[in-house]
Design a binder for these strands. Sequence first.
DNA 1: TGCCTTTCCGACCGGTCGTGCTAATATCCG
DNA 2: CGGATATTAGCACGACCGGTCGGAAAGGCA
Lengths: 202, 202
Amino acid sequence: MGKGARTRATILQAAVETACLAGFEGLNLQPLADKVGMTKSGLYAHFGSKEALQVATLEYAAELFQTRIVAPAKTEPAGLPRLERVFERWLDWPQNAGLPGNCPFFAGVVEFDDGQGPVRERLVRLFRDFRAVIEQLVASATRHGHLAAGTDPAQFAHELLALRYAHHWAHHFMRDPLALARTRTAFAKLVGATAPRAAQRA
Amino acid sequence: MGKGARTRATILQAAVETACLAGFEGLNLQPLADKVGMTKSGLYAHFGSKEALQVATLEYAAELFQTRIVAPAKTEPAGLPRLERVFERWLDWPQNAGLPGNCPFFAGVVEFDDGQGPVRERLVRLFRDFRAVIEQLVASATRHGHLAAGTDPAQFAHELLALRYAHHWAHHFMRDPLALARTRTAFAKLVGATAPRAAQRA
DNA sequence: TGCCTTTCCGACCGGTCGTGCTAATATCCG
DNA sequence: CGGATATTAGCACGACCGGTCGGAAAGGCA
């Protein structure tokens, strides 16, 4: 790995930490350069525009999410256990990936819900991919008989994301100590409501 | 109403529209002054600080939400119908209040989830008050026999907010045409899961 | 070693930010 | 009408923003 790639990695690590704390609009060049011990222009040369820096940071955050949150769940048995593991790690994923602050993707949703541009498009695609992962896990859990046959993976994913959002609101914003308990209760309800008859009797 | 109060109202109307489009950090003085046909300093004199402007805008948005979203539901019969009406109007409330863009409170959640300050505190209190309204509606619906006895209002409110959040994500950010249908399906599931036995058999 | 390329710094640009003043103007009351 | 007061304009400040440029320094390869 050449020198350029090494400092670029250093920058992106600092950038994703900043994004967790201040969002993608908060990825200002000067403070970021100070954080990695560089000049603003030196940092800028690696990306060419702030937008490119945002996209690169987004990409790097997605890699972190994949390797630190989704991939580790593959040690769990296929089906519902794997889905549960992903959800649990997802709830406080920045922390599980060694990052400070909150989920940068949620910040991006608010920052880029209007208008358009490459950052928004990339973020939409990331969410789409992740939703597809969830839907596959749901379909797998259904095939394993952990969820009722006929469960709609898309609907399930929609409601799962709802729970993750509400958790962010209750835990990080409202700072409600009961947030985690409420979220887990809701998750159990969601799974239980779509559980097959046999599992409900158990 | 004196001249001052009149222009102040004009400013706040423009401010809440801006907040729907750009959040509370996006409440910049110069563009806002241009929008109402004033000078930046002339506008500034009404509030004394940007933070005070943000708080005032928040307060005004809360009034709008109360009068345009919550209050109209009181024409519905008490209990579940009233709750359903609030939820429906809540889903696209800026539009129902004649505002452009998206829910400014959700933008505020992301902008003020870290740190502290008067704006954040005010927003937390607004959410707490609204959650209390939801809980009262749930309790009322339970008393009317529309929801199962023993329904936890706090848990119900948590899950209802989850649905509202997911709707924002799917509808405004992902721009998924199926968003509204998924949200309504989830709402029906939420109500149905806590419906009393008699209603379930019907 | 010598040389070319990558990498980085430092100074600087035009703009915009929030925030203070002063001065002029409009409004309201007696 | 006149004078006190509330309101707004004009102007400037320091700080920060993203972005540009030339040249110095270091890396990498022959």
